[in-house]
Design a protein around this nucleic acid. Structure first.
Lengths: 338, 338
DNA sequence: TTCTAGGACGCAAACGTTTGCGGTCAAGCG
DNA sequence: CGCTTGACCGCAAACGTTTGCGTCCTAGAA
């Protein structure tokens, strides 16, 4: 903790001016190579470490980038964060991580903190109902919505074609002869919840079938909800012969219930999981999500946006990138047997 | 992006001085309540957002905290990060996340970046061989080592009793009658690797048995290594009857190989896993780690340290907190049958 | 009335950089 | 020799806050 070394110290040490030292360290062309070398040498020998806050203040923009997500224990968001971190590192930015737990109040607090840090841009997976002020803070700088989309707001969005994903899964089961297909999904306050349910419904519509409304369960995307919901579903007289899940936690919950009920998959029940969590062990067929790709695309977009038009051109068309999920077939689905 | 609102703007708007406005917003006692109210009102109506970089520069310390970990996709580190994020949020700090991928060069770059940001403190899960300069940068401020420990360096450490963990697991298998117990572990360049192997060895020593050296496999902690290593182990004439794993990725690799070889657990082989990844589905007995507790303790320690003695009292005893793992028995171990 | 106390606020410096502008000096040209 | 030119470098302002100190004014005490 030996008092901070600043440009002034280097300057004094070499009988140079602060500005010369500054220019030397930023490799400005109007400084001779000889001087640059001397400056660099004493800088490192004195243990100089640049003060990015001071630089940011003077330059008017920082090199920080904010990432706001509901959770980081979740493998899904872990992958997102990793991709973002790599993007940032590669471009000389730093990642400021904020966890909201899907709480709008916490979300507002986090976004405010990032705003105060004058991040160069933000990537956010918005909570169900962001506060008005949260949006006001977001629009102060470049920002991108990831995965989820808040309605009535114009901002770039990088997401997944949720509808297509669940259409694929449901349609596959229908084609295998299943009719009693349960749906375990999130509530409709999230754009993802709405899209996924629609995909499930579309699969029935496209084949001229009725949606089995009594098999649809919507709730908070947590394991315990899904486990309970599935268990109660299994109590019904007219049981499902298959189940599609619309979230990784929900999928985990369903598997938990299945294990508890000692059901054999796919003998007693066909299951389609969601996402690429380590389901490989369970040989689960899932809706595969290009998580890493989407996050990379998102990160690169934001960083390019930050670099290029720092001015920002309003009323340019709002960018939307929608990535397609895929159906990864393993061993948890089988044709319907009466 | 309507030009930044600063204290000056608020001051001009109210015909006050900048310092009064500043004091009003920081709730200084020498400002009348009436003025404070007026200031707060116009501040929010103008959309004022404090500039934490400027504040940090003036105050001499920022509110940022750095977290440096090898990976964030890994559930283990995800849990760590979440706990740290919660600690920070609660204490009014922001989390700057850096991923090293266990590459010392990247690590140095990240630590440098955090130093330049003048973080108030850092928590780091060090790579196997940190560069000299990395350590020089770390000691500039309060820092804590998490999980892993770099040798020959005096700094607080929050970790797990790795030796006890593997002792527990191995001893359990020995007590069940197993003798041919394989060990799948990480290389010895990590303190964790060394400790865990020692625990395995101690279990044999404590029972007067020889360590089955031909069943010990050390390598990079990756799934593919463990899968290959276990497969080759199974080729041996004198096969193991049980296996303990010393890392979650290694455990996953072993499970992968087991699945591929179509072995029945615990009928053909007893297995003890590592950590609390979603092994619940495989009913795996594991060495349970108090990950969240340890991270919370670490975060709270660092933040308290930052708050309290910002001066820093050298030659105080170096704090070490060592948390005990536990043996979580599920259904993957069985007594030895000849 | 005068003096003091203290409440409420303004002035200006400082934090560490960056950068526009100006200055010095030597070389090259006419 | 005088001039221009370009290479190299210094001065000082500015970024937005915080804070020690000084100032003003009003109320209460002597």
């Amino acid at each position: 903790m030996a008092q901070e070394v600043t440009l002034k110290d280097i300057a004094r040490c070499l009988s140079l001016s602060v500005s010369t030292v500054a220019r030397a360290l930023t490799d400005s062309p109007e400084i001779s190579e000889a001087t640059k070398a001397r400056v660099r040498a004493t800088a490192s020998s004195l243990g100089y470490v640049a003060h990015s806050a001071a630089r940011a203040m003077r330059r008017g923009h920082s090199t920080l980038v904010g990432l706001i997500i509901p959770d980081i224990e979740n493998q899904f968001y872990g992958t997102l964060a990793k991709a973002m971190a790599q993007c940032c590192d590669q471009a000389g930015h730093q990642l400021l991580l904020a966890i909201t737990e899907d709480d709008p109040v916490s979300e507002e607090r986090q976004v405010r903190a990032l705003s105060e840090a004058r991040v160069a841009g933000m990537v956010i997976v918005p909570s169900p109902k962001p506060l008005r002020n949260t949006l006001n803070l977001l629009v102060r700088g470049p920002w991108v919505q990831l995965i989820r989309q808040v309605s009535d707001v114009e901002a770039p969005w990088f997401g997944i074609d949720d509808e297509a994903g669940l259409y694929l899964a449901t349609r596959h089961l229908i084609d295998q002869g299943h009719r009693r297909i349960a749906y375990m999904g999130g509530t409709l306050d999230l754009s993802t919840g709405r899209g996924r349910l629609k995909g499930y419904e579309q699969a029935f519509a496209a084949t001229g079938l009725e949606v089995p409304r009594d098999l649809v369960r919507l709730g908070r995307p947590r394991m315990d909800f899904a486990a309970d919901a599935f268990a109660s579903l299994w109590q019904q007289a007219d049981r499902p012969t298959a189940v599609v899940t619309a979230g990784s936690r929900l999928c985990a919950g369903v598997l938990e219930a299945i294990k508890h009920l000692k059901l054999a998959v796919p003998h007693d029940l066909s299951v389609v999981g969601f996402g690429d969590a380590p389901w490989w062990y369970a040989d689960l067929s899932t809706i595969g999500l290009p998580v890493r790709e989407i996050a990379m695309a998102c990160g690169e977009f934001l960083l390019r946006h930050i670099r290029d038009h720092r001015g920002g051109d309003p009323n340019a068309p709002v960018y939307q990138a929608i990535h397609r999920p895929s159906l990864v077939l393993r061993a948890s689905t089988a044709p319907f047997r009466a």
